[in-house]
């Protein structure tokens, strides 16, 4: 069934060069009239060649320069993404490192001072946990006072904001 007819190559070449059926010998035309495979090939290939000519004539391709610059832009964007990937990794590492150090510092301070534990134990008993109460317990070394607490909280807030911004920016 799939064995190609010996004349198929000749028929295909004539159709491709637009010489079918005028350029075909009478013998070939007689063969195509009786051979189903060659008849199908001549009919289909001729129809497709004509359709190709007609469709190509209808094509209105845009300027090549636009596509060239679009490709350059895309290549550049890919390069930017590749360059910024390690930077983003370093930023995430720095953020995580800062958070770990900050939390570690707070935990260390809490463990060092019994005032935290006292304040935490008193917290459920008090109706409302006031800042004044917190400060009165002397949670942090009085010599440090608010000079440590506020910058720490501000730094954490700032880093949190940066993390949120970076996450939304990536999206």
């Amino acid at each position: 069934m799939l064995t190609p007819c010996a004349y198929e190559i000749e028929v295909r070449a004539l159709v491709a060069h637009g010489q079918w059926p005028a350029g075909a010998s009478s013998e070939l035309r007689a063969h195509v009239a009786t051979c189903r495979a060659c008849g199908d090939l001549a009919l289909v290939a001729d129809a497709f060649q004509r359709a190709r000519t007609a469709t190509i004539a209808a094509a209105r391709p845009g300027p090549a320069g636009v596509l060239w610059w679009r490709a350059q832009l895309r290549r550049r964007n890919v390069a930017v993404e590749r360059l910024t990937r390690p930077i983003l990794g370093a930023q995430i590492f720095a953020l995580a490192f800062t958070l770990v150090v900050g939390v570690g510092f707070l935990v260390f301070e809490a463990l060092r001072s019994d005032a935290w534990r006292t304040w935490l134990q008193q917290l459920p008993q008090s109706a409302v946990a006031h800042w004044d109460e917190f400060r009165a317990t002397g949670a942090i070394d009085p010599s440090w006072g608010l000079l440590v607490v506020f910058p720490t909280i501000a730094t954490l807030l700032l880093l949190g904001a940066v993390a949120v911004y970076m996450a939304t920016d990536r999206q």
Partner: peptide, 12 residues
């Protein structure tokens, strides 16, 4: 640097 990286990333 970007152009150089772009050229390294994919040569046209």
């Amino acid at each position: 640097a970007l152009d150089a990286a772009a050229n390294r990333a994919c040569s046209s």
